[in-house]
């Protein structure tokens, strides 16, 4: 493993983590793409040393083929995921002219109910037993 691999992984993960915590679905998708690349590099770096392509008949130190097979699958599946995400973003945009992920309304309601209960000293016992 070289210092450069170290640095690339650090930057890809950092940028990916930064972007998936946004609200715009487009930027989340971009973040997922960057993270995916980072993960692929991690798997390759973790599993093998640099060497010749794992093709029988080649001379020299062959690299480990197994991580490559795994990452190959991961690349394709990552593409499927990105495509689906972007379709969602596109659909959201055509319907609402926005691709932001809003807060879940139901979750918000539970939170405000708990606040009300704390303020008023409401008795949940009675409230919840009444059908």
């Amino acid at each position: 493993m070289s210092v450069w691999e170290f640095a690339v992984i650090a930057v890809l993960f950092g940028v990916g983590a930064y972007m998936v915590t946004e609200r715009s679905l487009t930027r989340i998708a971009l973040g997922v793409g960057v993270l995916g690349n980072g993960v692929n590099v991690v798997i390759i770096t973790a599993g093998s040393n640099t060497g010749e392509a794992p093709i029988l008949g080649r001379t020299g130190d062959l690299t480990d083929p197994l991580p490559q097979a795994l990452v190959l699958t991961a690349i394709v599946i990552g593409f499927a995921l990105l495509t689906f995400l972007m379709t969602l973003a596109w659909r959201n945009w055509t319907l609402t002219h926005d691709d932001e992920v809003e807060d879940d309304v139901e979750d918000r309601m539970i939170a405000s109910r708990a606040e009300r209960m704390d303020k008023s000293g409401d008795q949940p016992h009675h409230e919840d037993v009444v059908p």
Binding site: G33, T50, G51, T63, Q68, V71, G78, L82
Partner: peptide, 25 residues
């Protein structure tokens, strides 16, 4: 450069497709 030509090929093709999908969306 790390001895993974199959990965490199796949990655090139898939990235191209990804750009196309992004542009469409």
């Amino acid at each position: 450069m790390r001895g993974a030509p199959d990965l490199a090929t796949t990655q090139l093709l898939v990235e191209t497709l990804t750009i196309v999908v992004f542009l469409l969306a």
